[in-house]
Design a protein around this nucleic acid. Structure first.
Length: 468
RNA sequence: GGUGGCAUCGCCAAGUGGUAAGGCCGUGGCCUGCAAAGCCAUUAUCCCCAGUUCAAAUCUGGGUGUCACCUCCA
């Protein structure tokens, strides 16, 4: 299969370091707030990647961290008076519950910075020993980027003199080079949180945790590369991933990752969603309006590297597409699940194996649905048709994580029990009216249901309804 | 200012040298008491200019527009 490597900046054949095994590390959230749609998209992208790799026969080891030491968390501590643990626990749980709603599989290991302090400290010590990190009088420890000839090889950024100087001007002085970054922040009076480690009291900088945790939990020690795939949002490429890679290179002598994958942004009204613009959108808020499955399907419907423009109109467009899977599933209801169609399976895996080409994948699914509907409409008796179709839908669920719900429940999402009862009663009276050829009355009832956003459809198996 | 991405039917969106997938919307038809659903049919020469080639949406050069990164950010 091929994937797009952000360092080589092209699609390349994916060949894991060791046959049949793939080790992936994805940068997880900083747990100082609820997760927004950008987190959802990133998680979803790598969730599908993982599913595809597994479906293609790889054994995948997947690690995603929680950044639970951070200035924004500390700020929250002083604002709310909560402890670090209280805040990070709350938002970790919020994150995990959102991910569950989106049907994102849990990582095999979910390390936290607070649980990796020994490894972080010894990692920093190695950098100091290797002469690529230095301590300044305040107690802060910096990484010396000038010591790594490969620095900027990940982001391919060019340092020009103007930028250097303008950045030097606004830097507090004691760094040796403007692009040096902090590995460890020494404790100062008034710090609300500080950890005691072999490099002193204080707290780690942002980038170091990933390098240390990758080495602890995931890295090959006997290979040119530590792991197969390192992923995250496109905004992490620089400086975060550049710095991670540089640290790891200087401490371990190995390149950090063989492939780098970055997902595109979620935009609202054509602008990147971000805290500073005030247009971010929490997953949990979206889940009040739409099911997790629909949100998942919608967020997956655009190729992961493209910018994703969130719009209600497009979301409803996606819903119609997802509805079609479930309408077919309803038609197949109660049947036995057979064997997935080999060609169908092959088409999906080939499309997804081409750098997760979702458009071709969805197109193939649409074609499959149409074909089955057509055959079903023609009335031919073919037990295997239904069995295979059900198996195909199961396969869709395996690789994309959608289509696995009960078809009837899917269409009843967000309808209260009392409304369901009312709907049943209305449909019953309409059925009676129809039987008596009282079509005006029947149509009136249908209008009433429609005003409740309930669409009905008369079938050979009786009148079915869906929430539109 | 530096770097990178993108520009294909009303909208979303595939396609990386051989004469434009798919979805939504619209229109016509079948089905239906009427609908809905489903099915069938139907809609583009690919931002502009120049070039390479037997052949380009796809390659090269130039231009325009747009977005992002360069500061915390998925």
């Amino acid at each position: 299969m091929t994937i797009y490597d952000s360092v080589q900046r092209k699609k390349v054949e994916f060949v894991p370091i060791k046959p049949d095994e793939v080790r992936i590390y994805v940068c997880g959230p900083t747990v100082y707030d609820h997760a927004h749609l950008g987190h959802a998209r990133s998680s979803l992208s790598f969730d599908v990647l993982r599913r595809v790799l597994e479906e293609r026969g790889f054994s995948v080891k997947f690690v995603k961290n929680f950044t639970d030491i951070d200035d924004k968390i500390i700020k929250k501590m002083s604002e709310s008076g909560e402890t670090l643990k209280e805040i990070t626990n709350r938002f970790e749980n919020s994150y995990l519950s959102d991910m569950e709603a989106l049907n994102v599989a849990r990582a095999d290991i979910e390390p936290r910075a607070t649980e990796s302090l020994d490894e972080i400290a010894s990692f920093i010590n190695r950098l100091i020993d290797n002469g690529v990190a230095y301590r300044i009088p305040s107690g802060d420890i910096y990484f010396d980027t000038s010591k790594d000839s490969q620095y900027l090889s990940i982001s391919k950024r060019v340092q020009n003199e103007d930028e250097r100087e303008s950045r030097l001007d606004r830097v507090e002085g004691e760094k040796r080079n403007s692009e040096d970054f902090v590995l460890w922040k020494g404790a100062v009076d008034g710090d609300v949180i500080s950890f005691k480690t072999e490099v002193g009291d204080g707290r780690p900088g942002w980038h170091i945790e990933c390098s240390a945790m990758i080495e602890k939990h995931l890295a090959y020690k006997d290979s040119e590369y530590s792991i197969d795939i390192h992923g995250g949002g496109a905004d992490l490429l620089f400086p975060h991933h550049e710095n991670e890679a540089s640290q790891s290179r200087c401490a371990t002598g190995h390149e950090l990752s063989k492939y780098w994958i970055h997902n595109g942004f979620v935009k609202i009204d054509g602008e990147k969603m971000s805290k500073s613009l005030g247009n971010s959108f929490f997953i949990r808020d979206a889940l009040h309006h739409y099911s997790g499955e629909l949100l998942r399907f919608y967020l997956l419907s655009t190729h992961y590297r493209q910018d994703f423009n969130f719009s209600e109109e497009e979301l409803l467009n996606s819903k119609k597409r997802l509805d079609k899977i479930y309408r077919l599933k309803k038609r197949l209801y109660g049947g036995k699940v057979g064997e997935v169609n080999k060609q169908f399976r092959g088409t999906l895996l080939e499309a997804l194996g081409d750098d997760l080409n979702i458009s071709v994948t969805l197109s193939a699914i649409d074609n499959f649905i149409s074909e089955v509907n057509e055959k079903l409409d023609s009335g031919i008796k073919d037990k295997n048709l239904k069995r295979e179709a059900l198996a195909n839908i199961e396969f869709i669920d395996r690789v994309l994580g959608v289509g696995g719900s009960d078809a009837y429940q899917y269409f009843q999402w967000g309808v209260s029990e009392s409304d369901k009862e009312k709907i049943r009663e209305l449909i019953e009276s309409r059925t009676v009216a129809k039987k008596d050829k009282q079509f005006d009355k029947a149509d009136e009832i249908r209008e009433e249901l429609l005003s409740m956003s309930i669409q009905i459809m008369d079938t050979a198996d009786g009148t079915l309804w869906e929430r539109s």
